[in-house]
Design a protein around this nucleic acid. Structure first.
Lengths: 376, 376
DNA sequence: CCGGCGAGTGTATGCGCATACATTTCGGAG
DNA sequence: CTCCGAAATGTATGCGCATACACTCGCCGG
């Protein structure tokens, strides 16, 4: 690493001009074979690797696409993060007594989105740069990311509106998984509403359920809101009374959902078995995400409430843990990899034609019927 | 995106020189407060975002660290990848009848490593660029990645040796999860050997097992090899006969392991129950990774062999699926996030002191005792 | 024999920024 | 009010590459 060789070094060594070196790399067909060989020789002898920065500057395009995620670790400042601890060579032997399976929704979700994005970017010769909008310096970090890429795919809510507007003046931006909104950006989202609608249609039509309740998500989650709309659509279509609000709101975490479920159990009892004075639990709980449903499942099972016998339970997202629960959870599977791919695809289109009107792509979802709704 | 504004535009608008603009961004303390305000005003009015390429070129450092992975999708050429199919608005409703839980080992593994790397990079104000060494143009892709970063963390085996050597002449390279090898690079790996040793020690000491067999991995997997060494260490220490070769070799996939298990069952029968003429199955199968163990578990369970009653089974890696199996799998958990963090840490050290001798960090693992070995 | 043409190569320039160095401004002390 | 040192700002340059344009050379048709 003494001093990385440059085109000039290569040119001198090969006895050609720097233009020729550049051409050998970028447009080999414009160079005579003999010359090409000589240059390649020099390149390998010197260990030459072209500077991406210089090329980006000269070519006015970096060949890099950015992916911006929200923080999933809940870390606000670098100080929050302890220095990594290394326990030396010791192998720790732990008796793992079980407990709830660690859920890594966000990780997996983001990982899959990244995988899709990377795949699609790779196809077209782009590199991918990831950035997490985290901490107090988030604005700066996002800004720097934007300055380094040709286009930016941003997960909804990870970047404040004004920052996003600022950035969008420099690079094309596509918003992933946000509500289909009428702003200047391209959007790529998942059909939350239709997915929930289809799921609830199934509960009503195939299982004959009529007493359904929706467990909502955080107030500021557009996803949760859309899913609730889908729920209402289905009830309305079936001629059932349509609630204005979810019966309760979860914070989208499994532990939060457990607390919520316990509170609900205190004031409700299951409709079957009767004899008690409390208000009956709804016959079906349509949860706004899988974690919520799993949290409810934990508590209901513990309380001796049978799923789906006493209460039918469904989720949304399609995380792995829904396959491992007892009973397995009926849910709506999000096309996570597709989300990433589609985002990059949109970005590419936008780069090719910057003047095209902002588009919104709505990705279809899949309803997975399993035991928790009474299927199988 | 008409034309991204530059320092010059900002300078003009703010009535200062470009140097001042640059300083406002890089060394705010060197600029009078009043000037700073004016410049920031101009920046926001113009929607100025500094060019990473230009800065990288001028500063001779990009502030980006690279992460290079092997392909986990098995895609060789862009042509192999079908264009994304969008089924329009249709929501597909599928009856999911179950079957083995989809395992996404690589995804999760890589995702966790990335997460660790990103976290650690973020702490120190670095961005992370990911690259997958995939396809025929892999050399070019890796080269370009190397040209864009200040340092590169490479997952073992993802880059051919000569390419790696070429690249290492430009940027510091650290190899992740490779065998502790005596080359010029920094290494960061996981203590496969000690982990397996500790696990097998437990089987021998705490469960009194003496008839143990090791199910190996692919010939070219250094990880599998090291784990086998750990196995041998434990047997030797206990005074048991030490095998020269694994009793069989899996390809590290669950389905591959199933086939292998079936073949083994044909020639063996369990030692208990007796009466049969076949050779007895070993009392314990120490598998070189979780997928292999899970594949065996599938087949053994199906064949009515009790785990851990008839055969004790263990894995290695600590993937999520090991918590969901019946019985839950005793395994050795890899510090995946730590791997990423440590890699970035090493890289940073190397950047700070390029002349330091190549280091190798061996990360400790954790043995997780669960039901498949007879614990709990 | 000459002019013209195209393939192959070289020359010169600018991309947008950081920064060394030169210059100006400012705030006090005398 | 003057002068000086420090603070603030401006000027000029180069980072490594792509590329427009100029140039050379060999070849062909006239």
């Amino acid at each position: 690493m003494a001093k990385a060789p440059t085109v000039y070094d290569v040119a001198q060594r090969a006895g050609v001009s720097i233009a020729t070196v550049s051409r050998v790399l970028r447009r080999p067909d414009d160079v005579r074979e003999r010359t090409r060989t000589v240059v390649h020789e020099a390149i390998r002898e010197l260990g030459y690797v072209p500077s991406g920065a210089a090329r980006g500057l000269a070519a006015r395009s970096t060949g890099v696409l950015g992916l911006c995620f929200p923080d999933v670790d809940g870390i606000d400042e670098a100080a929050d993060l302890p220095d990594p601890v290394r326990v030396g060579e010791a192998v720790e032997v732990v008796r793992d007594v079980g407990g709830p399976v660690t859920a890594r929704w966000s990780n997996l979700y983001l990982g899959e989105v990244m995988r899709g994005a990377e795949l699609e970017a790779w196809r077209t010769g782009h590199a991918v740069m990831i950035g997490v909008a985290r901490g107090l310096r988030r604005a700066q970090a996002v800004n720097e990311l934007a300055g380094r890429v040709d286009g930016l795919a941003v997960l909804a809510k990870s970047v404040p509106d004004d920052l996003l507007a600022h950035i969008a003046r420099r690079v094309p931006v596509v918003v992933m998984a946000g509500p289909p909104q009428d702003d200047a950006y391209d959007h790529i989202s998942v059909d939350n509403r239709a997915g929930t609608r289809a799921l609830v249609d199934h509960l009503i039509a195939d299982h004959g359920l009529r007493d359904l309740a929706f467990v909502g998500g955080p107030f500021d989650s557009p996803d949760a809101h859309e899913r609730f709309q889908g729920f209402r659509d289905a009830l309305a279509a079936a001629g059932l009374p349509v609630p204005d609000e979810p019966v309760a709101r979860s914070d989208f975490t499994r532990t939060g959902a457990r607390d919520l479920a316990r509170r609900m159990l205190e004031t409700h009892v299951t409709g079957r078995g009767s004899g008690t004075t409390g208000q009956a639990l709804p016959r079906a709980l349509v949860c706004s995400n899988d974690q919520t449903a799993l949290g409810f499942l934990d508590v209901l099972t513990e309380a001796g409430v049978d799923v789906p016998g006493d209460v039918v339970l469904t989720g949304f997202d399609g995380i792995d843990a829904t396959q491992a629960s007892m009973p397995r959870l009926t849910t709506v599977s999000q096309p996570m990899v597709e989300l990433g791919r589609a985002a990059v695809e949109l970005l590419r289109g936008r780069l090719a034609d910057p003047s095209a009107p902002a588009a919104t792509v709505n990705l279809p979802v899949r309803v997975l019927l399993r035991e928790s709704c009474g299927c199988s």
